[in-house]
């Protein structure tokens, strides 16, 4: 106990030291500039947390806070007793883990490959083409995939038939066990270029001298990638990985909502759709809030776990002690 107290004491002293106050004074303009954003965060991110109280109420819109009936953990219990909840949780985690595996590693590969291209015009062209789909709305992407994978003159089936790989057209969208794969593929196609930009930027930040000296030491292309490029972008990779893991459960619902059909519902319904259907649409505000809280809790646990592991293994973390 004692050493801890001492450290705290020392810290306290340290905070109000002359040196610190002087520094505050020096940075006052910077602090002032950041103030609006701090206020923004407080207003839009912290104050709404008050709404979490709804999860413990029989919430009826329009009634005052004190007129609501408190029901304790009722909605959490309903949620955890619902079999369907576990189904959507499975789908959510499965699709987000798939998208983490492919949607995270492939942009790194693309960035490294692009970096190896010496012809600038070609490199720019590939980069532009690969990130353009990012700007296409999911509504359009879903229609495109539906049409391409259709058995009714869909291009994929036409090619497979022409190559005699399949005898009968395959109805891709009707196969429940294909759904996760199709969604992940669409996601990777749409976002690969965009997500590689940050890694390209990180690669650009590596000092060229390192490559030159490696070349002098006789390192070839793969050795240079392995020993210089990869370690060079590792901090960026880790930061983005930790944040992606934190967002595992927040995969949204647009793609699933737009690409699903009646036959694949058991594999397509995700947590956000569940909240929408059984929380907001049904007017069960409290239930929706409870499910939202559950998501936040999982997110926080995931971020801290990932951060801890990363700090232990790679020595890099986004949250420091």
């Amino acid at each position: 106990m004692q050493p801890v107290n001492k450290i705290a004491q020392r810290n306290q002293k340290y905070i109000f030291s002359k040196k610190n106050i002087k520094r505050l004074n020096q940075q006052k303009y910077l602090l002032l500039m950041s103030l609006p954003f701090v206020i923004w965060v407080i207003i839009f991110k912290y104050i709404p947390l008050w709404g979490w109280t709804m999860a413990f109420q029989q919430y009826i819109p329009g009634k005052g806070f004190f007129q609501q009936e408190w029901v304790g953990l009722k909605y959490f219990i309903i949620m955890f007793q619902d079999n369907y909840f576990y189904l959507v949780l499975r789908n959510t985690l499965a699709m987000s883990i798939l998208s983490l595996i492919f949607g995270f590693t492939l942009p790194i590969v693309l960035a490294i490959l692009l970096n190896e291209i010496t012809k600038q015009t070609f490199k720019r062209m590939v980069q532009t083409i690969s990130y353009l789909p990012h700007f296409v709305s999911w509504v359009i992407v879903a229609s495109l995939f539906n049409k391409m994978l259709s058995i009714d003159d869909g291009v994929v089936n036409n090619i497979l038939m022409a190559l005699r790989i399949v005898e009968q057209p395959v109805q891709f969208m009707a196969k429940p066990n294909f759904f996760w794969g199709i969604v992940t593929f669409a996601d990777v196609w749409k976002e690969i270029g965009w997500n590689s930009i940050i890694f390209l930027a990180a690669i650009a930040g590596i000092s060229p001298e390192l490559y030159e000296s490696a070349m002098v030491d006789g390192a070839g292309r793969f050795k240079k990638i392995w020993h210089i490029t990869l370690p060079g972008i590792l901090p960026t990779v880790m930061v983005i990985l930790i944040m992606s893991i934190g967002n595992l459960i927040n995969i949204g619902f647009e793609k699933q909502f737009l690409m699903r059909n009646s036959l694949v519902r058991d594999y397509s319904d995700v947590l956000d759709l569940y909240i929408l259907d059984y929380g907001i649409s049904a007017g069960r505000w409290a239930f929706g809030t409870a499910a939202g809280m559950f998501k936040s809790l999982v997110s926080i646990i995931l971020v801290f776990t990932a951060n801890g592991i990363s700090r232990k293994v790679a020595g890099i973390g986004i949250i420091t002690k």
Binding site: P48, G51, N250, I280, T289, S296
Partner: peptide
């Protein structure tokens, strides 16, 4: 980074109806 993370966490938090 810490601020960034705080923002991320609060973004992740499903807040009440806005």
């Amino acid at each position: 980074l810490l601020i960034l993370v705080l923002v991320m966490i609060t973004l992740a938090a499903g807040c009440g109806p806005q």
